[in-house]
């Protein structure tokens, strides 16, 4: 049995958002993307708590940007998904794909 754990759903969503945003991935843009794409309103605290956890696990790295006027002179914290993060994403996706294979949902209103 594999020792490596799979990512949680929220962790996957955040990693994917950071990857999509590329060099412009910081707290506000990640939140905006989640709201636009998934209609999910995430609090800043929840987002940063997860990003911190992912950083500790080595799945993202962060770097501070320049302070800007509209932020009251405070800097942005940019995030980037590491190779380890990408591997974890792929592993989670493969696991889900594997589990979905040959499965048909028959409930009302849930058709694949």
């Amino acid at each position: 049995m594999s020792e490596q754990k799979y990512l949680g759903e929220f962790e996957q969503v955040i990693l994917l958002a950071v990857m999509r945003l590329g060099s412009d991935a910081y707290g506000k843009t990640v939140r905006e993307l989640l709201a636009e794409q998934l209609n999910r309103d995430v609090t800043v605290g929840a987002l940063y708590a997860t990003l911190e956890r992912l950083e500790v696990k080595g799945m993202v790295t962060s770097s501070m940007g320049e302070p800007t006027k509209e932020r009251g002179g405070r800097a942005k914290k940019y995030f980037k998904v590491t190779a380890k993060g990408q591997q974890a994403l792929k592993r989670s996706k493969d696991a889900l794909t594997q589990m979905w294979q040959g499965l048909t949902l028959r409930g009302r209103g849930v058709q694949l």
């Binding site: 910081y26 707290g27 506000k28 939140r31 800043v44 605290g45 940063y48 501070m64 302070p67 800007t68 509209e70 932020r71 009251g72 405070r74 800097a75 942005k76 914290k77």
Partner: peptide, 9 residues
């Protein structure tokens, strides 16, 4: 800095 800045922005 990042959290307070994000919210201010």
């Amino acid at each position: 800095e990042p959290v307070v800045g994000d919210l201010a922005e």
